[in-house]
Design a protein around this nucleic acid. Sequence first.
DNA 1: CGGACACTTGAATAGGGTCAAATTCTGTGG
DNA 2: CCACAGAATTTGACCCTATTCAAGTGTCCG
Lengths: 234, 234
Amino acid sequence: MKSDLASQREPLSTCPAGRAGGTFFVTRDEPLGRRQRFAARMHVFSEGDPAQRIYEVVEGRVMLYKLLPDGRRQIVELVDAGGVFGISTLPIYDGFAEALTACRVVSYDRSAAGQSIELWRRLTARVQVQFCALHAHAVVLGRKSATERMASFVMQCIPGRGGYDCPGPRGTDNSARIRLCMTRQEIADYLCLTIETVSRTLTALRRRGVVSIEKPEQLCVKDVCRVCRLTGDR
Amino acid sequence: MKSDLASQREPLSTCPAGRAGGTFFVTRDEPLGRRQRFAARMHVFSEGDPAQRIYEVVEGRVMLYKLLPDGRRQIVELVDAGGVFGISTLPIYDGFAEALTACRVVSYDRSAAGQSIELWRRLTARVQVQFCALHAHAVVLGRKSATERMASFVMQCIPGRGGYDCPGPRGTDNSARIRLCMTRQEIADYLCLTIETVSRTLTALRRRGVVSIEKPEQLCVKDVCRVCRLTGDR
DNA sequence: CGGACACTTGAATAGGGTCAAATTCTGTGG
DNA sequence: CCACAGAATTTGACCCTATTCAAGTGTCCG
């Protein structure tokens, strides 16, 4: 249960808004929100930065993580399109936000966001969705075996399936291709395992014919419902 | 990492609002909120109940938990005075809410809560505080040793200490008496340990002179800062 | 082709889990 | 106040899952 050093893959440093240092820059200011793009592996903010803005993901995936002083890392949340991040009770951010994929976000000044009722409603409604997801993730971290965790994670990567209102297989096609867009280390830090256990667990799932590993970051799930049953949730 | 059967201590069933079956009943209807009291160990709601109301804790402590089909339980959140619970994205609650102590709550009809801007702001602001706390708890569950978890839990039971703005010891008195108001099983289900490990860890802390165990549910922390260092957070 | 990096695999280890038994609390009734 | 029963907690012995440590094996890209 000891140290998991933060990913060896060095994250890119934040690109200051407006400075077109490459592929990412502020594209346009909106009345309230400011559009920004981030390349994969770029930091949106870091622990200790002044918590001035709230972010909404338009496209792509962002991870939020925290570090312990000795280097152990926990990815506390994965934020997909529609999700919100940058919520902080303190005057500074209490963790890091890093783009997992190239992504587009809109950010709002914290105080300004509270002015617009419309905007505030949208953001808070979304926070509630994520709040419930965090509760569910606590169960994953707290009470599930390595296999159940991997299965839960895989299900999370298949939009529209596995939820309360899962429609079941579309016709006879019960397969899914998924891009993990995370390294083994990141999956480990999200599921609270080690990189080796993630690798072994995936291999075991492959051997059992549950998934095929097309590329390290791309899986094909043969039978979604079977994975769903492996989550331990039902 | 296997089963942790739900607490043997049988929870009391919910008392229907308005029916004064004993010490708990609706005391008064307010314009928006409805005041209620719950005795310790009473359920406020259960998984699958229609998610019609949002609750605010006025006094006492409520725990939210989820069960896996095989009986494993995870207490996903502890809600103290000021906290909010009953947030659900679905038409039904996705977990259980049980009073740990006798407590007073105010509940609001979900749709009505959205009408009052004032109320909505207060509730959502509070949800954000808890949202950040869940992030922190993910680190506890994911990356901490048994001792670090217990230390984190103990710190959580000492109001005003250990946070970003911890004022440090008040004068020369750096001790604290705390009521856990949870059984070992509940602490285990919250920290994602077993009842035996909780007991052993507490005993170890006692042997090291970090805490004294006055009663099973009442501890005395000799040196708060020392416990704080044991959390692994700093 | 070769170096760097990510991933996989194997063997040994340890931290916490499991199972079982003893001890302490707590509440009740005499 | 004391004795008793049932529950909660503590403790002990052993075990298992996931971690740790240590090599490999791709794979990408200059």
